[in-house]
Amino acid sequence: MPYPEGHKQKVRGKIIESAAQAFRTNGIRDISVPFIMKGAGLTHGGFYSHFDNKEQLVGEACRYAINDTIALLQKAADQEKQEPQINAIIGYYLSPYHRDKTEMGCILPALSSEISRSSDEIRQVFTRELERMIEFISNAAQVDSATGSALLSTMVGTLVLARSVSDSKLSDSLLSAGKQQIKGLIKSYVATEL
């Protein structure tokens, strides 16, 4: 009996989603194809009917994770009625919730250090996805690309440090300080544009 139309795409999507969640939580190197397939509710034997290799899956998972992050940040922005939308984006990104939910969080802080030692193919995909995030942040903050890059870099760096420490008070204070610095950077940009 043949599978219904769209079945292969649906299965492929489940694998990508499982990989994105696993990579966000544990990185690339320590996650095996069988682990990803199990997370998708599948046996690892079917992997190669969807992907040529793990590198191809890493690229697809990066795209998926960035799409997911942009959608979450846009949702936070759309719910904000009072402040500039960028403040809602910053608030969500540097929240204890986002810090603690690594499996659904932004992939940039989760993989940046590992990607720098990856293949050119993976680095190219990661670069394009980083550029999309910079564009999203720049547009939301209504700043140029250089300022958007600084905003995102500060957000990612803050989240990396907040996730790295064992002291919850220090972690919270890092998130708070990051928010203040980023909002200050936006204000100084706006002031120089006037």
Rank of each mutant, 00 (worst) to 15 (best):
A77M: 13
I86F: 14
C62D: 02
I89H: 00
F47A: 10
K54A: 05
Q74N: 12
N67K: 09
E60W: 05
C62S: 04
L73H: 00
G91Q: 02
A76E: 13
R63M: 11
G45L: 11
E80T: 07
L72M: 13
A77K: 04
K81A: 15
K75W: 11
Q56Y: 03
A88E: 05
K75I: 04
Q79N: 12
L57G: 08
N87R: 15
Q79H: 12
A65V: 13
A65H: 03
P84C: 02
A61N: 04
Y64K: 01
A61H: 03
H50N: 12
K54I: 07
H50W: 07
I90C: 01
A88P: 02
Y48V: 06
G46R: 14
A77I: 06
V58Q: 04
A77W: 04
A88M: 08
Q82D: 15
A88Y: 05
F47V: 07
Q85C: 03
D68E: 12
L57I: 08
G45R: 14
K54H: 06
K81T: 14
L72Q: 14
K75P: 01
V58T: 08
E55R: 07
L72Y: 10
D68S: 12
A76S: 15
Y64C: 01
D78F: 08
I86D: 04
A65G: 02
E55I: 03
N53P: 08
S49C: 07
I70Y: 03
L72G: 02
G46I: 09
N87G: 02
D52Q: 12
I86M: 08
E60V: 03
G91R: 01
F51K: 03
I66M: 07
Q79F: 12
R63T: 10
N53S: 11
G46H: 14
F47K: 09
R63A: 10
D68N: 09
D68T: 02
K54M: 07
G59Y: 05
A77G: 06
Y64S: 00
E83I: 10
N53D: 14
A61M: 11
A88K: 00
F51Y: 05
L72A: 13
V58F: 04
G59A: 07
N67W: 10
N53Y: 05
T69Q: 12
I66Q: 00
I66K: 00
